[in-house]
Write a protein that binds this DNA or RNA. Structure first.
Lengths: 233, 233, 233, 233
DNA sequence: AATGAATGAGCCTTCATTCAT
DNA sequence: GATGAATGAAGGCTCATTCAT
């Protein structure tokens, strides 16, 4: 029963911190919502700041358990994998209303990094990033520099995250049609996958590899060169 | 002398709000830094909130004056224009070391939109966005849907902004080499331009236009189709 | 034109001070309502407190000019005079909505006397009080002590003022019928006059005067003994 | 020990609110006088306003305990009862020198009613008022209208309260002899009782009852008609 | 182990007032 | 003579935190 209070606080604090930010969130608010004593936060966590740090990590650990990284389907082509990767990121960022608060927490961490940032990256971000790098390694010539792969990875991730980070601006720029089919997760996934696959062609050309014809057209060349291998989302 | 105090507050408040956010910033802090009386903020702006709103708009207006949108050089190709556009955005986001606080302000606005958001978008964001759309219109088949162009524009902008939004994560992911040549503005500009130009190929193919061959290869086709015309970034 | 601002402030301040009290009234409020500069109060009156003092006296001086003390009608009996006196006080206290704010000012002065109190009493209250004492002198035996007359005067005035001072309580005690005919100024005037006339009988008896019969019945005795003499309200 | 701070605040706030009024009283002042932390008021009462409301009711509840309504002595005549009633009110208003602050609180409430007003009237004022009405019912003909009895009650109470409400003016009008024997509680009680008893005669006459002679003279008729019954003041 | 009470620092805001023009 | 700008003091209130139990 000792940990129950602790857990309840942890679970309650997440969405509140995500919604209001660290400063605007009050310990009172959290304790009231969690229906625990006002002094509990300091008793269990020592300070508001410590609670925040633990909340951030707890939130992502829980999310990882609840939404485990999907394994690649067998015989998935590179295009399949990329599409799945993009979809996974989009789902995390935009998906399903109530699920989004973990991402909000993450965004705040990006904007104003705290001590929670480094472990967050190492535990939850780097694995995904490495898998994307791996996927790219399969598509690109072996001679491609790591830096190039990283920049390409950021280009892909950046397109996805933009709809979370700049969501407010996107909505204002395109008007009220934000919720329409054209900006559904499906549509965005198709677009970003198509955009990125086509872009990859330019980096395949750089290498001194022989047959140009096979690579470019319709993005099909990409698919062709990729062996089926598991890549988490 | 009437507006001097007002201006000093406005100029001082910007970086502080950018650094700490609205909640964590105190009026005392601003007034102390601006060396004005504590009551001045309420006298000139009525409230902390109003000060924030005016600060945000003032900051971007000033920035626009200081870094005016560059005109296209004569005879610029589409690739030239795109490269210039990308460079301008990157400069705004990452440029000039300590000067980046206006963008931080903007990021906060995206994360936690206030009433300052809409005028910000209309006055400062939309013009840029429209110019990018225009540029894309020149490159893409006439039949291309507006929605498609918008999504492509977001794909381009998203790649750039990612280095601002997720900067902290980027640094942690690639290690201490962030400041190296590989992630300089020049290098990023080259990369994003190359990536995007190649991607555009996929959307040029969609149209029922006849000669496919000329367009795609090396991104050269894009350049060919674009008449020289000035487009601001 | 120098005095116009001064006058406008004076006229505006009265009702506001009456409504809100000295503390709760702000100089800003008055200046805004009077449509004069914020610094005008201090310029013309030196301080908020001085303004208050002058406002109180100004208010009653104006009221006296606007509602001069009525002269007794010729051949008025003592009962007539008393009735007229009571009616005048009731009118001042309760009369006509908008007119009541001067009395509110007066009430505040009673509750929390300021320097404005003494001149107020001497200039505006004592004349009325003296006239009531005079009227009583006509009705009562010559041997009646001044103190007795004063206490009787207070008994009469007290009955009237109660409907101003304790108005809120009266309303709550008798329910919503406060505005009904039974508590109209006319009805109250009748009641208080009747009540007081009857009471006077007891003080007429005290004296060693001879004929008892003439005095008491129906209050008529009082009327009989009173010669017509002017009494201000 | 839980409520000790709360009680100390409540007890301290009473006289201060009474002296200065709600607006002019500061929470700091109260806390300093009560020797409690500045934040205590908000902790225990939520706001200055709530503290005021609770203070007003607490004050009267305490006063009621300290000065309980006296029971009628056995075989008390109507005159006895009226005298006792008047004395009780006068004692409440003027009694005990420095203790009169509860009444000041009440006066403020009359002048500028707050939410504290209604419960105050219902809990503390109405019981007294009802007992006076009852007492009058015994003295007056059965046919007497309730409204008439109420107005008479107000006439009696009004005489008493006048020495509290208009105390400042009374003092100024009669000069420095205010503290003399002539305006002692005893003397005022005698006067008001005598004045009111005599006045009642006029209302006894109104009824169509037969024998006029017995009632009027010397106020004795009143006494005669009243059966001995306990009436609280 | 857990809590209700209490704390002191600090928040934004408002005030009457003053000053330079 | 009159005002817009500025001032410093103080206001009520909220905060994260601590303490005695």
């Amino acid at each position: 029963m000792a940990d129950e209070t602790r857990l309840r606080i942890l679970r309650t604090a997440g969405p509140i911190f995500a919604e209001c930010g660290f400063e605007a969130t009050t310990v009172r608010e959290i304790c009231a919502a969690a229906e625990v004593n006002l002094a509990s936060v300091n008793y269990h966590f020592g300070s508001k700041e410590t609670l925040y740090l633990e909340t951030v990590q707890f939130a992502h650990r829980e999310k990882l358990l609840r939404v485990p990284l999907p394994a690649w389907p067998p015989h998935a082509t590179a295009e399949d994998k990329l599409r799945l990767f993009v979809r996974t990121i989009l789902n995390r960022c935009l998906g399903d209303g109530a699920v989004g608060w973990e991402t909000r927490l993450l965004m705040r961490e990006m904007l104003h990094p705290t001590h929670a940032c480094r472990p967050l990256v190492e535990e939850f971000i780097r694995p995904q990033f490495d898998q994307l790098l791996e996927l790219l390694a399969e598509v690109l010539p072996e001679s491609t520099d790591l830096v190039v792969r990283q920049r390409i990875a950021f280009s892909i991730v950046g397109q996805c995250l933009h709809y979370r980070f700049a969501n407010e601006f996107v909505v204002l720029l395109i008007g009220a049609e934000r919720d329409s089919e054209a900006y559904s997760i499906d549509a965005l996934c198709d677009h970003i996958t198509k955009f990125s696959l086509a872009a990859l062609a330019a980096f395949q050309l750089d290498s001194p590899s022989p047959s140009c014809a096979a690579r470019v057209s319709h993005g099909r060349s990409v698919r062709d060169r990729i062996p089926a291998a598991p890549i988490p989302s």
